[in-house]
Protein backbone atom coordinates (compact mmCIF):
# COMPACT_ATOMS: atom_id res chain seq x y z
CA UNK A 1 0.00 0.00 0.00
CA UNK A 2 2.78 2.31 1.09
CA UNK A 3 4.77 1.39 -1.98
CA UNK A 4 1.88 2.26 -4.21
CA UNK A 5 1.55 5.58 -2.47
CA UNK A 6 5.21 6.39 -3.06
CA UNK A 7 4.81 5.32 -6.67
CA UNK A 8 1.87 7.69 -7.12
CA UNK A 9 3.76 10.56 -5.57
CA UNK A 10 6.75 9.95 -7.82
CA UNK A 11 4.55 9.75 -10.85
CA UNK A 12 2.99 13.06 -9.86
CA UNK A 13 6.39 14.80 -9.55
CA UNK A 14 7.44 13.49 -12.93
CA UNK A 15 4.14 14.63 -14.44
CA UNK A 16 4.51 18.11 -12.94
CA UNK A 17 8.09 18.24 -14.17
CA UNK A 18 7.16 17.08 -17.65
CA UNK A 19 4.29 19.54 -18.00
CA UNK A 20 6.32 22.50 -16.69
CA UNK A 21 9.22 21.62 -18.99
CA UNK A 22 6.82 21.43 -21.91
CA UNK A 23 5.16 24.73 -21.05
CA UNK A 24 8.50 26.48 -20.64
CA UNK A 25 9.75 25.15 -23.96
CA UNK A 26 6.56 26.10 -25.80
CA UNK A 27 6.58 29.54 -24.20
CA UNK A 28 10.10 30.15 -25.47
CA UNK A 29 9.24 29.06 -29.00
CA UNK A 30 5.98 31.00 -28.94
CA UNK A 31 7.75 34.20 -27.92
CA UNK A 32 9.91 34.01 -31.00
CA UNK A 33 7.34 32.60 -33.44
CA UNK A 34 4.51 35.05 -32.70
CA UNK A 35 6.75 38.10 -32.09
CA UNK A 36 5.32 38.57 -28.60
CA UNK A 37 8.09 41.00 -27.67
CA UNK A 38 10.68 43.20 -29.42
CA UNK A 39 13.85 41.20 -30.37
CA UNK A 40 16.05 42.41 -27.46
CA UNK A 41 13.39 41.60 -24.89
CA UNK A 42 12.68 38.27 -26.58
CA UNK A 43 16.29 37.18 -26.10
CA UNK A 44 16.04 38.09 -22.43
CA UNK A 45 12.79 36.15 -22.05
CA UNK A 46 14.20 33.05 -23.75
CA UNK A 47 17.27 33.22 -21.53
CA UNK A 48 15.16 33.56 -18.38
CA UNK A 49 12.90 30.69 -19.43
CA UNK A 50 16.03 28.60 -20.02
CA UNK A 51 17.21 29.27 -16.48
CA UNK A 52 13.85 28.27 -15.04
CA UNK A 53 13.99 25.16 -17.23
CA UNK A 54 17.31 24.20 -15.63
CA UNK A 55 15.82 24.54 -12.15
CA UNK A 56 12.81 22.43 -13.18
CA UNK A 57 15.04 19.67 -14.51
CA UNK A 58 17.11 19.63 -11.33
CA UNK A 59 14.08 19.63 -9.07
CA UNK A 60 11.80 17.11 -10.79
CA UNK A 61 14.09 14.84 -12.79
CA UNK A 62 17.41 14.87 -10.94
CA UNK A 63 15.80 15.15 -7.48
CA UNK A 64 18.00 17.99 -6.30
CA UNK A 65 16.11 19.90 -3.64
CA UNK A 66 16.82 21.47 -0.28
CA UNK A 67 16.37 18.17 1.61
CA UNK A 68 19.33 16.98 3.64
CA UNK A 69 19.88 13.88 1.49
CA UNK A 70 20.45 16.00 -1.62
CA UNK A 71 22.61 18.61 0.10
CA UNK A 72 25.94 17.23 -1.23
CA UNK A 73 24.68 17.20 -4.80
CA UNK A 74 23.23 20.68 -4.47
CA UNK A 75 26.52 22.00 -3.11
CA UNK A 76 28.42 20.43 -5.98
CA UNK A 77 26.06 21.95 -8.51
CA UNK A 78 26.30 25.40 -6.94
CA UNK A 79 30.06 25.11 -6.79
CA UNK A 80 30.25 24.03 -10.43
CA UNK A 81 28.09 27.00 -11.36
CA UNK A 82 30.31 29.36 -9.44
CA UNK A 83 33.49 28.08 -11.08
CA UNK A 84 31.96 28.08 -14.55
CA UNK A 85 30.73 31.65 -14.07
CA UNK A 86 34.17 32.71 -12.85
CA UNK A 87 35.92 31.12 -15.82
CA UNK A 88 33.48 32.20 -18.53
CA UNK A 89 32.81 35.63 -17.06
CA UNK A 90 36.48 36.31 -16.39
CA UNK A 91 37.43 35.25 -19.91
CA UNK A 92 34.80 37.55 -21.42
CA UNK A 93 35.86 40.52 -19.31
CA UNK A 94 39.56 40.05 -20.03
CA UNK A 95 39.22 39.44 -23.76
CA UNK A 96 36.72 42.26 -24.22
CA UNK A 97 39.08 44.62 -22.43
CA UNK A 98 42.04 43.52 -24.55
CA UNK A 99 39.93 43.86 -27.69
CA UNK A 100 38.87 47.35 -26.66
CA UNK A 101 42.45 48.46 -26.06
CA UNK A 102 43.67 46.97 -29.33
CA UNK A 103 41.16 48.95 -31.38
Amino acid sequence: MDQQHAYRRQLRTYAIGFVSALVLTCAAFATVRFHLAPPQTAIGIVFALGLVQIVVHFRFFLHIDLERSARDDLQLILFSTLITLLMVGGTLVILANLHHRMM
Binding site: G90, I94, N97, L98, R101, M102
Partner: peptide
Protein backbone atom coordinates in the same frame (compact mmCIF):
# COMPACT_ATOMS: atom_id res chain seq x y z
CA UNK B 1 44.86 33.33 -13.29
CA UNK B 2 45.44 36.72 -14.85
CA UNK B 3 48.50 37.37 -12.68
CA UNK B 4 50.41 35.11 -15.06
CA UNK B 5 49.94 37.72 -17.81
CA UNK B 6 49.78 41.09 -16.09
CA UNK B 7 51.84 42.52 -18.93
CA UNK B 8 49.60 41.36 -21.77
CA UNK B 9 47.84 44.72 -22.06
CA UNK B 10 44.55 44.71 -20.17
CA UNK B 11 43.83 47.87 -18.24
Amino acid sequence: WLHHFFTMGQN
